Amino acid sequence: MEHLFLDFVQNEKPFAWLYQFLIMVLVSMIPFAPIPVLAAFIASNHDFLPGLLINMLGTMIGSLLLYLLSKRLLRRVALKYLTKRQYLTKYFELIETHGFLAVLLGRIIPILPSAGINLIAGISNVSFVAFIAATFLGKLPTILAFSLVGHQMAAGNWDTVLIIALYLFALFLLGKKLKHKWSR
């Protein structure tokens, strides 16, 4: 199974970019999926811009699909996911009152998994246009950072990797602090 997965994501096949894109779409719909690792790996197999485009488009399409599924079919599942976690209820209240800003901040600062944001936005009153705009603007810095890490690792530029890792770690700590504040 591991060998099959590596065949799909490595850039040795004629349509590897398509397989990588489809895997990124699927993975971005799963809570707690290793999107950063996959994004860095995909970017390490391409020039920077194609790697970034595969990662960004894959996560955008996956987010959009889960948002639409949540809005149309998964409402009960999304509400169950929401009620099990107190901090998600507070995030739901925030997203109901400030939809665009809540989605944007949830994307930039890792308060909760991307799939959770998609599910909550789908059952809330966040409009399609606001969701897409906030998702694009919020995902761009982190997907850019993950893609840059992968590309720089492949090039052996470890100083750049360290700087980006510190940036991502700072975002992670900020997200944990906000999550802890909302859990009270």
Rank of each mutant, 00 (worst) to 15 (best):
R184W: 07
F8C: 14
Y167H: 08
I111R: 01
I23K: 00
K80Y: 15
A115G: 14
P34G: 08
M153Y: 06
A78G: 04
F32D: 02
V37W: 00
A154G: 12
R85S: 08
N11L: 01
T83I: 13
G58N: 05
L144E: 02
V27E: 08
G156T: 10
L119H: 02
L69H: 03
G122I: 04
G62A: 09
F169L: 12
N118T: 10
K90A: 05
L173V: 15
H151E: 02
L140M: 09
I163V: 15
T97S: 13
K176G: 12
S127I: 10
A39S: 15
T160M: 14
A165E: 04
S127A: 07
I35H: 02
G62N: 05
M153W: 03
G62Y: 02
R107S: 10
A130G: 04
K13N: 12
E12N: 08
I132F: 11
A33C: 06
F32P: 02
D47S: 13
A43N: 01
L166V: 15
L18G: 01
G122K: 04
K181G: 00
Q10W: 07
S183P: 07
P141D: 07
L174Q: 09
I54W: 07
I35L: 14
L64V: 12
Q10D: 11
Y19K: 13
T89I: 11
A134L: 02
F32S: 08
L74C: 13
L166I: 15
M1E: 11
R85F: 06
E96F: 00
N118E: 05
T142D: 04
